[in-house]
Write a protein that binds this DNA or RNA. Structure first.
Length: 300
DNA sequence: CTCCAGGCAGTGT
DNA sequence: ACACTGCATGGA
């Protein structure tokens, strides 16, 4: 990959194993807006970025080389060699082949811990468009204004201190429903240090999961999403309904299998690459193999 | 109208 | 250990 700076834009060329749309739309993040095909506005780390991909080049508009190196390089995980990651996965398991090849451009983003925690607490029993809407509302009401693109204003996800005085009622106003007390608990525990990002990062994945599930409304699935997307723990393997369905189909000959069993299987099968396998399988299972159509067929 | 959504906590065996 | 239920809200 080559990096250059051109009239205020950071330009990446000869980009391999990356697809902007796949990476943003695969369900790991919620704080972005599609502007056109392969062009997005992304909010992260208190910044607003317009970014576009054209074949094997990526343009980050109106940013600095320093911001690229300090923020966007890690955010988009350009520092990792996904060619090697995919090769390693396929070497031990060619059941994954179709999923990996279909979703070949997915990167696992390195998102902010606090935003990831709150976002995935919100995600329970909700569809992705709803989650995005609530994240947007929280940012608008409690976060900082980051500026505008194409006449639309964008807001940073609120910080812990900006959320400290937000009440359960305020949160219900933002349509968080029964998750409102969960968010309050997560904010409190983060603010008073019971939940510390540094401690979570230092802990191994199993230990980290235990710490996170002390928060009300955080179970195994939310904790694993938080670890994979917000704490850079690539062996985390969130098991949700979609992963359950696709794994039952691919690895358990269609047999009903409980989530714990699937998680244990994934741990021995994929090990430190679990998170990557999970994300290829999740997106593939959801969009291609099982999809919304098949779900309707199942009902009839 | 009913059913379900990237689940979880609470309660009951 | 395991099964079952309620939960806010919006879309199909």
């Amino acid at each position: 990959m080559q990096i250059s700076y051109d009239e205020g834009n950071v330009v990446l060329t000869e980009v391999r194993d990356f697809d902007l749309a796949q990476t943003l739309e695969c369900g790991q993040c919620f704080h972005f807006k599609k502007l056109a095909e392969q062009e997005y506005a992304v909010c992260a780390f208190h910044r607003l970025l317009r970014i576009r991909q054209e074949k094997d080049s990526v343009i980050l508009f109106d940013t600095t080389m320093q911001d690229y190196e300090m923020i966007w390089r890690d955010y988009f995980d350009f520092g990792r060699d996904y060619g090697r990651i995919k090769a390693a996965l396929l070497q031990t398991d060619d059941t994954l082949k179709e999923a990996v090849e279909t979703m070949q451009g997915v990167h696992i983003l390195q998102q902010e811990f606090f935003e990831t925690l709150i976002s995935f607490i919100i995600s329970q029993n909700k569809q992705i468009p709803h989650i995005k809407k609530i994240v947007e509302t929280l940012s608008e009401r409690f976060g900082d204004d980051l500026g505008e693109i194409n006449g639309m204003r964008f807001f940073a996800f609120p910080t812990v201190s900006q959320m400290c005085n937000v009440t359960e009622e305020d949160l219900r106003d933002c349509k968080t429903g029964f998750r409102a007390p969960y968010i309050v608990d997560a904010v409190q525990k983060t603010a008073d240090g019971q939940i510390s990002e540094a401690a979570l990062k230092a802990a191994d994945t199993a230990e980290c999961e235990k710490m996170l599930t002390k928060i009300k409304g955080v179970g195994s699935k939310v904790a694993n999403c938080c670890m994979l997307f917000g704490l850079d723990k690539r062996d985390a393997f969130p098991v949700d309904v979609w992963i359950k369905r696709i794994m039952e189909q691919l690895y358990f000959s269609g047999k009903e299998t409980d989530k714990e069993k699937i998680a244990a299987f994934a741990k021995t099968r994929f090990g430190s690459y679990g998170g990557y396998a999970q994300q290829y399988l999740f997106f593939y299972g959801k969009t291609v193999r099982i999809g919304a159509q098949n779900q309707k067929i199942k009902k009839v």
